[in-house]
């Protein structure tokens, strides 16, 4: 369980993490969602005891990361973004090393258990240098789990591996829910949706939104976007026509066409084409625009800006 209060990290004049506060419940999987450079990694490094915070405090299982750092670190399993490995070690030796370093006296059975959990048991005597990227990712997970910590922190656990492996890793992480609190960072919204119970969205070091992934999507996205290009109509007529379609909340000029914002997830494409035809214009192009995370952030940030 993690309690964070006004956690701040400054690198000289740059404030990487700015007064972040949140709490997690036991057995909860929390996602840190944000673009690159948002402060996800810095936050995690502070929680794992790698970086000392500039201000604020955090507690892992009740141990303060500053004053009771060793105990706090003991309660954390950490998988950094780039999996750090010793290429000249065997899989088992590597996991055993970390288990011992984190205070386990007889780690053998636990190591075997964890290796089975991440499906590396067959490879236990292989040198790490011979492992594939996905296997290394699972190895990184194994070292984070081996000492059975109450809190597990995973930095971009699915980055750079193929889709099949992504699914495997996600499943493994989901299975951790039973016994651990998991904090993972990602910049992929769908991943957060699939895996996390709760998502914190970070931008420029601050939490800009948080909640259940589905709620958040609704709240942020506020519907779908549709791009339409019409031939044979003046801009004024076209805009009037499009604005008159039910469920369309806004119409904006974009390039040669128009961007429609649709209020709910109703499919309005049939209606749009029908109306254009009946008005005697030509439908040159129509496509649904996916909302990229970046777009959501833009949205959020502009909302924040207008709110203040």
């Amino acid at each position: 369980m993690i309690e964070v209060e006004n956690l701040t990290k400054k690198y000289g004049a740059l404030t990487a993490v700015d007064r972040i506060s949140f709490k997690t419940k036991p057995g909860e999987i929390v996602g840190l969602l944000g673009p690159n450079g948002a402060g996800k990694t810095t936050t995690m490094r502070m929680l794992t005891g790698f970086l000392p915070p500039t201000e604020g405090s955090a507690r892992i299982s009740g141990h303060d990361i500053d004053t009771d750092s060793i105990e706090a670190r003991r309660a954390v399993g950490y998988m950094p973004e780039r999996i750090p490995v010793y290429p000249d070690m065997t899989v088992r030796a590597y996991v055993t090393f970390w288990a011992r370093l984190r205070g386990m006296r007889r780690p053998a059975s636990q190591v075997d258990k964890v290796l089975k959990q991440v499906q590396l048991f067959d490879r236990r005597d292989t040198l790490i240098r011979h492992l594939s990227k996905g296997m290394r990712q699972r190895l990184g997970l194994a070292q984070a789990l081996v000492h059975d910590p109450p809190v597990i922190i995973l930095d971009e656990p699915t980055i750079g591996i193929d889709p099949q492996q992504v699914i495997e890793v996600r499943e493994t992480v989901r299975a951790l829910r039973a016994n651990h609190t998991v904090l993972l960072s990602t910049h992929i919204l769908s991943e957060a949706e699939h895996v996390c119970d709760r998502v914190l969205i970070i931008n420029k070091g601050q939490i800009v939104a948080q909640g259940k992934p589905g709620d958040l999507r609704e709240k942020l996205q506020g519907g779908a976007l549709l791009y339409v290009e019409i031939g044979g109509a003046t801009a004024k007529d076209a805009k009037a026509l499009l604005a008159g379609i039910p469920n369309v909340t806004s119409v904006e000029k974009e390039d040669k066409g128009w961007r429609l914002r649709i209020s709910t997830s109703v499919d309005v494409r049939g209606e749009v084409s029908k109306r254009i035809m009946s008005a005697g214009y030509t439908l040159l192009e129509m496509r649904a625009e996916t909302t990229s995370l970046e777009a959501i952030f833009l949205e959020l940030i502009s909302k924040e800006g207008s709110a203040t």
């Binding site: 490094r45 794992t48 060793i70 950490y78 750090p84 970390w98 370093l101």
Partner: peptide
């Protein structure tokens, strides 16, 4: 260089 130092420094050891 390998990044293992980060992991070492998060281990519960002085």
């Amino acid at each position: 260089r390998e990044g293992t130092l980060e992991l070492l420094l998060t281990a519960p050891v002085p």
